[in-house]
C-alpha cells in the first residue's frame, strides 16, 4: 500500500498527499513506509518561511506572494501553522480565510496544520510535510507560522529563505530584536506600510542590520521590503528579494552547506524523537515511570541517577547491546 500511495503522490494526487500528511500529523506508523519511498524524490523544492507576530498580516502576505509566484508559472505549496489549544487539544485554523483567492488554482496546495504537542517540536512535522509537497511536484513551498525562537514553533530550520514580517505600531522592532529574530531573517518585510510609523520602523531595522554587518562579516545583508499585502503592493519586490537570496545561496555554495546542516539536524532530531518515544512508551506502559516519579517525589531517587540508569539499561538490552558492542569494537 505504501508503494501505491507514494506512486500516487509522485503522480500528483492531492488526495494521497493529504492522507499522508494526516498520518504524519498523527505520527501513524503507516506514514514512514511511504516517506521512505518518496524520500529520493525530495529536496528539489525551494522553501520560503514567513514568520512574524500575530496580526502582522502573514496569511494575507502569503496569499499575495503565492499569487505572485504563480505568475512565473511555478507550482506552490502552502503550509499554514496555527497553535493548538493546550487545554482541549483542538485548534481553530483560520488562515484559509485570507487565501480564498487561491482556492480554485489546481497548482496551489494549501494545508492548515495545528502545532499539537509534537515530540521534537513543530519542525519535525513541518519538514516532513515539506517533503510530501515537494514530492507532489510543488516548486516553491511557503510555510507560514507565528513566532520564532520557541522550540514549539521554530520552523526556521526548515526554510531556505526566512522572511520576517513586521508591522508599524506593534512595538515589533524592539520585540524582535530581543527575541533574536534579527539574526534569523534573510528578508525583512514591513507590512501595512501605509500606516503611520512605517518609515521609522524601516529606518530602525535598516540601522540594526547595518550595525550587524559592521560587527560580523556576512555574505548576505537582509534587504528591508515594504508591503501593503491587502492591496498587493510591494509583493513583487518581495519575491524579487527572495529570488535574490536564492541566487546568493546557490552562487555562494551556501545552499549546499545549509541543506547539509538541515539534513544533519533533521536526522538527529528524528533519531532523538524516536528513541525518546520508545523509551517513554516502555517506561509508561510498564508502570515504571509512575514508580520512579513516586521515588523522585519522596527523594528516594534523584533524576540524574534515573537518567543514567535508564540509559545504561537501554543500551544493555539485547538488541542494542550487539550494535553497541560492534560500534566499540570498530
Amino acid at each position: 500500500m505504501a508503494h501505491d500511495f507514494a506512486a500516487q503522490i509522485l503522480e500528483g494526487s492531492n488526495r494521497a498527499a493529504a492522507r499522508l500528511i494526516s498520518w504524519l500529523e498523527d505520527e501513524d506508523e503507516r506514514a514512514y513506509e511511504c516517506m521512505k519511498e518518496i524520500y529520493p524524490h525530495t529536496g528539489r523544492a525551494f522553501v520560503v518561511g514567513i514568520t512574524g507576530s500575530p496580526g502582522a498580516g502573514k496569511s494575507t502576505l502569503t496569499n499575495a506572494l503565492a499569487r505572485e509566484i504563480r505568475q512565473s508559472g511555478l507550482k506552490v505549496g502552502i503550509l499554514a501553522v496555527d497553535p493548538s489549544s493546550p487545554f482541549t487539544g483542538g485548534a481553530l485554523l483560520g488562515d484559509r480565510v485570507r487565501m480564498s483567492d487561491l482556492a480554485d488554482d489546481p497548482d496551489i496546495y494549501i494545508r492548515s496544520m495545528a502545532t499539537r504537542g509534537f515530540l521534537g517540536g513543530m519542525a519535525k512535522a513541518a519538514s516532513d510535510v515539506v517533503k510530501v509537497l515537494d514530492a507532489l511536484g510543488k516548486d516553491v513551498i511557503v510555510i507560514e507560522t507565528v513566532g520564532v525562537g520557541q522550540d514549539e514553533v521554530d520552523i526556521v530550520g526548515v526554510a531556505d529563505t526566512t522572511c520576517v514580517v513586521l508591522v508599524p505600531g506593534l512595538g515589533d522592532a524592539i520585540q524582535s530584536m530581543k527575541a533574536g529574530i534579527m539574526e534569523i531573517a534573510d528578508v525583512f518585510v514591513i507590512n501595512k506600510a501605509d500606516r503611520p510609523g512605517a518609515d521609522m520602523l524601516c529606518a530602525e531595522v535598516s540601522a540594526r542590520i547595518e550595525m550587524d554587518a559592521h560587527l560580523r562579516e556576512r555574505g548576505w545583508v537582509a534587504p528591508v521590503n515594504k508591503s501593503v499585502a491587502v492591496e498587493g503592493v510591494g509583493v513583487h519586490e518581495l519575491w524579487l528579494s527572495i529570488e535574490a537570496h536564492r541566487k546568493y545561496l546557490f552562487d555562494s555554495g551556501r545552499f549546499y552547506e545549509s541543506r547539509r546542516e538541515k539534513i544533519a539536524k533533521e536526522a538527529l532530531r528524528m533519531i532523538h524523537g524516536e528513541l525518546f518515544r520508545v523509551v517513554r512508551e516502555q517506561l509508561e506502559q510498564s508502570g515504571r515511570l509512575d514508580a520512579a516519579v513516586e521515588k523522585l517525589m519522596n527523594k528516594k531517587l534523584d533524576p540524574y541517577t534515573l537518567m543514567r540508569d535508564t540509559l545504561t539499561e537501554w543500551l544493555s538490552s539485547s538488541q542494542c547491546k550487539r550494535r553497541h558492542d560492534e560500534d566499540t569494537k570498530g
Binding site: 483542538g90 485554523l93 484559509r96 482556492a103
Partner: peptide, 17 residues
C-alpha cells in the same frame, strides 16, 4: 475546537469547488 477537533474555517463566499 473545544471538543478537541481541528477546525479549518474557510470564511465567506465559498463556491462548492
Amino acid at each position: 475546537a473545544e471538543a478537541g477537533m481541528e477546525v479549518v474555517y474557510t470564511g465567506l463566499r465559498q463556491t462548492p469547488e
